[in-house]
Amino acid sequence: MNEKYPIIKIEPKQANYPYWLSTSTQNKHTIYVRGQLFPTDYRPIAMVGTRTPSWNGNALAKELVASLKNCKTSVISGLAHGIDSQCHEAALKNQVHTVAVLAQGLDMPIGGPRGRLAGQILEQGGALVSPFPLGSKAFKHKFLIRNHFIAALACATVIVESRESGGSMHTAAHCLEEGRLLLATPGDILRKTAQGPNLLVESQSALALWQCDNLPIFAELEFISQDSSPSGAVAAQQLDFWNNFAGECLSIEEIAQRSQKNLPHLLSILSELEIQGLVEQTPQKNYSFNKTPP
């Protein structure tokens, strides 16, 4: 890995210094990069959470990242066990660019599953990033700095699952400090790892992510290939939804039964498809799906 992916030192005044980092309070730091950073027109999203997630937390991480497929974005996380690793792995699976921010020098060894995941990130065109010079070991205080860098590299941060205190909540605080968008996924009030997101939403510090498909909308993401969606504006998930019903005229009940989506989410999708001219509501209150894009 060392020979194939050399470490590059990037100074703040260099043209390839990441845009979102350059507009943050951390913009005086030299960074070290192994692999490929995201293109300058991407809007990267930080996604972090507890090292001991619930089944629901793992599922949320996977679905949130899947919603970013075909978007101009990168998943920024910390390569830690738990939610961080789930987000990186989901990014690799969905071919979404991903960056792991480390609390150590990039020349220092990464053991076990984290090391293997780091190698996969590089092999699939992602990057490892560190604000620490070569030879730096991962001491506790460096994780606090790492957490700030995760938020500073991204246009928005998502707290997937977290206790009321800990690294993820530090990242949330840094996101607010940078004036960036903060999102959180509310959870069961009895689950300790849902207390952090619930607190952020209740205090109105973060927007609640009730639907995973809303993430690209809230983050104002563009699509990698405008030719792959009608009018270049329909989300990939909405396009897939339309393809399933193209040429049919159905009642809302029939659509709900076949799509297995709840009514509020379904109405939101249909409304967007109507705006794009892919669906029309008939006088009988049915929905007519066009056979081809307008």
Score class of each variant (00 low, 15 high):
Tyr5Met: 06
Pro18Leu: 02
Tyr19Gln: 11
Trp20His: 06
Thr25Trp: 01
Asn27Leu: 09
Ile31Val: 11
Tyr32Leu: 01
Val33Arg: 04
Gln36Lys: 11
Leu37Arg: 04
Phe38Asn: 07
Thr40Phe: 00
Gly49Met: 03
Arg51Tyr: 12
Thr52Leu: 12
Thr52Arg: 15
Pro53Tyr: 10
Trp55Arg: 14
Asn58Ala: 06
Asn58Trp: 00
Asn58Cys: 12
Leu60Asn: 07
Lys62Asp: 07
Glu63Val: 12
Val65Gly: 10
Lys72Asp: 11
Val75Glu: 00
Ile76Ala: 09
Ala80Gly: 01
Ala80Arg: 06
Gly82Leu: 13
Asp84His: 07
Asp84Arg: 02
Asp84Ile: 02
Ala90Asn: 07
Lys93Ser: 15
Asn94Ser: 14
Asn94Lys: 12
Gln95Met: 04
Thr98Ala: 13
Leu102Trp: 06
Leu102Gln: 05
Ala103Thr: 02
Leu106Tyr: 12
Pro109Asn: 15
Ile110Gly: 03
Gly112Ser: 11
Arg114Trp: 06
Leu117Val: 10
Ala118Arg: 01
Ile121Gly: 04
Glu123His: 12
Gly125Val: 12
Ser130Phe: 08
Pro131Asn: 03
Lys137Tyr: 13
Lys140Phe: 12
His141Asn: 14
Phe143Trp: 02
Phe143Met: 10
Phe143Val: 10
Arg146Cys: 04
His148Val: 03
His148Phe: 04
His148Leu: 03
His148Cys: 10
Phe149Met: 06
Ala152Met: 09
Leu153Asp: 05
Ala154Arg: 02
Ala154Trp: 00
Ala154Val: 03
Ser165Lys: 11
Gly166Leu: 11
Ser168Phe: 08
Ser168Asp: 06
Ala173Gly: 00
Ala173Gln: 12
Glu178Ala: 07
Leu182Gly: 01
Leu182His: 03
Leu182Glu: 02
Thr185Cys: 13
Thr185Asn: 08
Thr193Val: 08
Gln195Ser: 10
Gln195Thr: 07
Gly196His: 08
Asn198Ser: 13
Glu202Thr: 11
Trp210Pro: 02
Ile217Cys: 08
Phe218Asp: 00
Phe218Lys: 02
Glu220Phe: 13
Leu221Cys: 05
Phe223Ala: 10
Gln226Pro: 15
Ser228Gln: 15
Ala236Gly: 05
Gln237Val: 15
Leu239Ala: 07
Leu239Arg: 14
Trp242Cys: 05
Phe245Asn: 01
Phe245Ser: 05
Phe245Lys: 00
Leu250Phe: 09
Leu250Trp: 12
Glu253Arg: 06
Glu254Trp: 03
Gln257Cys: 09
Gln260Ser: 15
Leu263Asn: 06
Leu263Gln: 09
Leu266Glu: 06
Leu267Cys: 11
Ser268Ala: 13
Leu270Lys: 04
Leu270Asp: 02
Ile275Gln: 13
Ile275Thr: 12
Gly277His: 11
Val279Leu: 04
Glu280His: 15
Gln281Ile: 08
Thr282Leu: 09
Thr282Glu: 14
Lys285Asp: 13
Tyr287Glu: 03
Ser288Gln: 14
Ser288Asn: 10
Asn290Glu: 15
Thr292Ile: 13
